[in-house]
């Protein structure tokens, strides 16, 4: 029935696979799909930082919030464990935790939070509009639920970790459901290729 459909999908998949000539990745390869790393935010030490501060590092960008009950801590723990397994080469990795709940996440709170996971983890925050622009750039979003009696509210946010290489080019996309072995495998390859 779907002869043009087959042609369409073949061309399509071919076009998609054309983006990834180098070593096949186990995680989603986002080379060419997502724009390069670019931002201007405040870090957990109240200093203004841009993507240039992290050039030379392999960076993992995650959009979360510190009061997050499940997705954020799970993902951060997974990354902390992976970095431990990477050993020495982990020193060239930075995990940027960008808060999508700047109202509740002060710099102090972010600092306390990222210290739980290790020195590679850096909390970043910015004004609501700045965060909106940044999430739009990476085609992710966030939204807030209604406040309860204690003033707490749910936040819907992206579960993705975008990995950029040392030049700030988008390379990999990991999620909460990515297998730890796959993450380790792809990170090792990425770090080896950037040496």
């Amino acid at each position: 029935m779907s002869y043009p459909k087959i042609i369409f999908s073949t061309i399509f998949l071919f076009a998609l696979s054309a983006c990834s000539n180098d070593e096949p990745t186990r995680l989603t390869n986002i080379k060419g799909l997502i724009p390069d790393l670019a931002f201007e935010l405040t870090d957990e030490n109240n200093a203004t930082v841009t993507e240039k501060n992290y050039l030379g590092y392999t960076t993992a960008v995650f959009f979360g919030f510190t009061s997050c009950p499940e997705v954020c801590p799970t993902t951060m723990h997974q990354w902390a464990a992976t970095l431990k397994k990477l050993g020495d080469s982990a020193t060239s990795v930075k995990v940027l935790f960008v808060s999508v709940d700047p109202e509740r996440d002060s710099t102090d709170k972010l600092k306390q939070y990222t210290e739980l996971f290790g020195p590679a983890f850096i909390g970043l925050r910015g004004e609501d509009a700045v965060i909106k622009d940044m999430t739009k750039r990476y085609r992710v979003t966030f939204g807030y639920g209604d406040k309860d009696t204690q003033g707490d509210y749910e936040v819907s946010h992206s579960s993705a970790v975008f990995v950029f290489d040392q030049y700030g080019k988008a390379r990999l996309l990991a999620t909460q459901s990515s297998a730890p072995d796959d993450l380790l495998h792809d990170l090792k390859n990425l770090l080896a290729s950037s040496r």
Binding site: R139, V140, T141, F142, Y144, G145, E154, S156, S158
Partner: peptide
């Protein structure tokens, strides 16, 4: 379609 989890939803649902 896990892309909506990956990218986040417009409101919690």
């Amino acid at each position: 379609y896990d892309v909506y989890d990956v990218c986040g939803r417009a409101w919690p649902i």
